[in-house]
Write a protein that binds this DNA or RNA. Structure first.
Lengths: 132, 132
DNA sequence: TGTAGTGTACTATGATTCCTAGTACAGTTA
DNA sequence: TAACTGTACTAGGAATCATAGTACACTACA
């Protein structure tokens, strides 16, 4: 479920945040589902519990999960913090990346197709579950 | 022309790479145009020449500029290294960011519009010169 | 030719970040 | 009570970032 690259220059906790976001967005992890405890996940991944906690703290601050002392950490329902500041930030990053993509020769049609695929994957993640 | 945030957790040389890429992609800096020397730019920005060189080295490895010992550093003509590996990498990053954008409530239409705007900003300069 | 400018390659040092290890405390649940 | 949970510290090693300084090879120009 988690593939971490310890040698990567990208910090482990950031890899964790990315991966968990992905699982939440694609609804592999559903609302109010309990996440592994920091100690359990740390043991599974053979990394330090503090690193897990750092990732969970980041995800909580971004609204993707919530934690209850003594109980555990859980996936937030539906939408995370919908502050316009965050949306602007994502749009800004998106602009840079899209500019580079177009400069590299990726066509508009390819980008449109990519968006369609992603939307299908997010909206249709459940139906595909029990397909042959 | 360059706005650096020394306090940011994003390294200065990465900020430089991003900003220069942006200027090259939007053709504010045109092909074969000479960039400021590492020492000059370092003095202007009040940072170390080594930091500038690191950014230039990165840009050269990505094909955006080329350097000639004794002469200077220059903007590469047209397309950078078009290896499929790099394109795949960009597409992959794009997928993650697009997923997050959609999850945050940004609509497909907004994304399409964004792409149109970017393409207009990039491609507009050339096509207006002379039409086939 | 000499000189000033260019890119490039080192070493060394301090600051910061990442990750680990260990300990401790507060809350929940069976 | 006992075993789990999140959370908050301290301390240390390793890596990265940016700085400072020095040096060398090359180019352009007076």
């Amino acid at each position: 479920m988690f593939e971490l690259d310890v040698r990567s220059r990208k910090p482990i906790y950031e890899q964790l945040v990315e991966r968990l976001k992905e699982l939440i967005i694609t609804e592999v992890l559903t609302a109010d589902e309990q996440l592994p405890s920091v100690r359990t996940l740390a043991q599974q991944l053979t990394i330090n519990p503090n690193t897990i906690q750092k990732a969970y703290r980041e995800l909580e601050s971004q609204g993707y999960i919530y934690s209850i002392k003594g109980k555990g950490s859980f996936v937030s329902a539906a939408t995370p913090n919908l502050n316009s500041e965050k949306i602007e930030k994502v749009k800004n990053e998106l602009s840079k990346l899209l500019s580079e993509a177009i400069y590299l020769g990726i066509t508009k049609n390819e980008l449109f197709k990519l968006i369609q695929e992603i939307e299908a994957a997010i909206g249709g993640g459940i139906e595909d579950d029990q397909n042959p």
